[in-house]
Amino acid sequence: MTAPVTILAVDDEPVNLRLLEAVLAPRGHRVLQATSGAECLDLLSREDVDLVLLDVVMPGLDGYEVCRRIRGDERTAFLPVVMITASDAQQRVAALEAGADDFVRKPFDQSELLARVASLARIKRYHDTISAQRTELERWNGELERRVEEQVTQIERMSRLRRFLSPQLAEVVMDDESLLASHRREVVVVFCDLRNFTTFAETSEPEEVVDLLREYHRLLGDVIDAHDGTLERFTGDGVMVYFNDPFPCVDPVDRAVRMALEITSSVQERAVRWHRLGYDLALGTGIAQGYATLGRIGYEGRYDYAAIGSVTNQAARLCAEAAPWEVLVPDRLVATCDGRLQTRQLGTRRLKGFTRPVEVHDVVAIAERAG
């Protein structure tokens, strides 16, 4: 037994409609009836039909015109249409030219009618399956395009963020911006800048200054990233880096000191070439450890991630005190390293903005941690 289908029977003679229903309904098919071409088109606009049995000769819109209109509608263009015709060849040719898929002669043979209904309904179902698959494929393609576009946007956003933020901050912003909310944490802050840079900038062409800064920043940036430092900002020749935020790290003092010494060594090597060009430049560095409030500051449309607190001020003041190639740290930081720091004790210094004097050391080297 063939699967039941919905059939629209169209004939202006009620007796013919009753006969068609008597043949088709017992096979489980749902039979809709229309007594005119206009009623047929109206039903097709409202019902989901699998096949149309369409009489040729009807008042008003005849079967040929109805078939042409069915084919002209995008929604029903592939709907199977069987024309019920007289036996002459001219009507059969006209039915095919109007767009009919098949025809049945009057008076129709029941077995032939049922076979044609089953065959065309099967083709309709194939077409419906293909249409549904095409629709699903288009939906999936649209979803894939949307996801690709989102990923490209994310990649472009990350690329832009990495140009202005440290890799750690870029990752945080992409994954969870709530992590940038204000919080308090112990950090190790490193400040460094170039000695004699102001004089160099005053006596050099702007292009020379920019080229040197690009070289200097690129050199520092590679070292900072290698030690997983968080770069807060470049301020001309000045650089501020801190450790233990936004992600806590193991032994931030060790990381900070090793980075500072590597930066000093790298810039010192580069300064040999600068000296040949007539640039009398050197590096000074300050490192401090303490609690700071960290988080996003700024205004809508332009934010920075910053560390606020006396620890940043102390690192900056130590940097300002440093002679060429010195890496200055307070006595408290030396004590946290369990004797691993090799330093030159420089004595007590009064740092601007601090009421208490600070015992200052110049770091020469750092030993590996035992074990």
Results as ranks from 00 to 15, higher is better:
Arg30Ser: 13
Phe103Ile: 05
Glu177Lys: 12
Glu232Asp: 12
Glu145Asn: 10
Ala323Cys: 13
Leu20Trp: 07
Val327Leu: 07
Gln154Trp: 14
Val82Tyr: 01
Arg296Gly: 13
Asp225Trp: 02
Pro357Thr: 12
Ser131Ala: 15
Glu202Val: 05
Leu41Trp: 06
Gln91Glu: 09
His127Ala: 10
Arg75Phe: 11
Arg69Glu: 05
Val31Ile: 12
Pro107Phe: 11
Val329Asn: 01
Thr129Tyr: 15
Asp251Val: 02
Gly142Gln: 09
Ala25Met: 14
Phe191Asp: 04
Ser265Phe: 13
Val81Phe: 12
Arg218Ser: 11
Arg258Gly: 01
Thr230His: 04
Gly278Phe: 09
Thr293Lys: 07
Ala315Thr: 02
Arg273Ile: 10
Gln154His: 13
Thr293Asn: 11
Ala201Gly: 05
Cys337Lys: 11
Ala307Pro: 00
Ile84Asp: 01
Gln268His: 15
Ser159His: 13
Ala95Asp: 11
Glu138Thr: 13
Ala34Cys: 05
Ala260Thr: 00
Ser204Trp: 07
Arg30Met: 11
Ala98Met: 08
Leu346Cys: 06
Ile130Ser: 06
Ala86His: 05
Pro252Ala: 03
Ala121Lys: 06
Arg18Glu: 10
Gly142Glu: 10
Asp62Trp: 01
Val56Glu: 04
Val187Cys: 01
Gln345Arg: 15
Ile308Leu: 07
Arg185Val: 07
Thr293Tyr: 14
Leu54Trp: 12
Met1Tyr: 12
Glu74Met: 14
Gly142Ile: 09
Asp11Phe: 05
Leu281Thr: 04
Gly63Asp: 00
Ser310Gln: 08
Gln151Asn: 11
Ser45Glu: 12
Ala25Lys: 15
Thr153Ala: 15
Glu326Ile: 00
Ala89His: 12
Lys106Glu: 08
Gly290Cys: 02
Leu144Ile: 13
Glu269Gln: 15
Tyr126Met: 08
Ser36Arg: 08
Ser265Asp: 15
